[in-house]
Computed example of a mutant assay.
Amino acid sequence: MNGLTVEIGSGMGNIKQVIPACITTDIFPNPWLDRQENACRLSFADHSVANLILFDVWHHLEFPGTALEEFRRVLLPKGRLIVFEPAMGLLGRLVYSLGHHEPVAFQQPVHWFAPPDFQADDPPYFAAQSRAHRIFIQGEGSEHLVGWRVIKTLPLASLAYLASGGFSKPQLCPAALHPCLRRIDAVLSCLPSLFAVRLLVVLEKNEG
């Protein structure tokens, strides 16, 4: 499919090591990123993007419906939104509740659409780590996904990710053990309600 591949919320921009042509963006300007972008007010032209990638960004979207409208605007028909987020298996809930500073926020209401006075250019900080699990696994607010087809929801055990220390923690085990952890992950991922720590979601924009 012709069209751009864009990462929203790129942070350090490491995705270019895997997808060199990916356009990296973040809400804050940084010299190593390609563009400054806001998920609720993108500067890309209508129907110009083939793939939008959000890595640990979805749980920072206070108004996911507003963001989805903008994603639909820039995506080509059958363009894809690829989301990678915290998963809320029993292990995931324990890890994110006790070992992460952001709230899990299972009981916090989901406000899908921004109010009229919402300042998209200067949004307040927001985080709710359970947001993807509630929407894509539990089906909360599924009526707001009209216009999208859910291609994949894949909860993963991801002990290898935890052992890496994630984004900000020190590495917890030698890199040499990574292949072994990946094999254990493949087994534990068969029981996502117990062991899921990460969640991959792929949405496809319906034609029209």
Results as ranks from 00 to 15, higher is better:
Pro77Met: 02
Pro77Ala: 00
Lys78Arg: 11
Leu81Ile: 02
Ile82Trp: 02
Ile82Cys: 10
Val83Asp: 05
Glu85Ile: 06
Pro86Phe: 12
Pro86Met: 07
Met88Glu: 02
Leu91Ile: 00
Leu94Ser: 14
Val95Gly: 01
Tyr96Ser: 04
Tyr96Phe: 15
Leu98Glu: 11
Phe106Thr: 09
Pro109Asn: 09
Pro109Gln: 13
Ala114Glu: 09
Asp121Cys: 12
Asp122Ala: 15
Phe126His: 15
Phe126Leu: 14
Arg131Phe: 04
Ala132Gly: 07
Arg134Met: 05
Arg134Ala: 11
Ile135Asp: 03
Phe136Glu: 13
Ile137Leu: 12
Gly139Lys: 10
Glu143Val: 01
Glu143Ile: 00
His144Met: 01
His144Trp: 10
Leu145Cys: 05
Gly147Trp: 11
Val150Leu: 11
Val150Lys: 13
Leu156Lys: 04
Ser158Gln: 05
Ser158Arg: 12
Leu159Ala: 03
Ala160Val: 06
Ala163Phe: 07
Ala163Gln: 02
Gly165Phe: 06
Phe167Tyr: 10
Ser168Cys: 08
Gln171Arg: 15
Cys173Trp: 04
Ala175Asp: 08
Ala175Ser: 12
Leu177Lys: 00
His178Asn: 04
Pro179Val: 06
Cys180Tyr: 00
Cys180Met: 05
Arg182Gly: 00
Arg183Ala: 14
Asp185Gln: 06
Ala186Pro: 01
Ser189Tyr: 03
Cys190His: 07
Pro192Asn: 04
Leu194Val: 14
Leu194Lys: 01
Leu194Asp: 01
Leu194Pro: 02
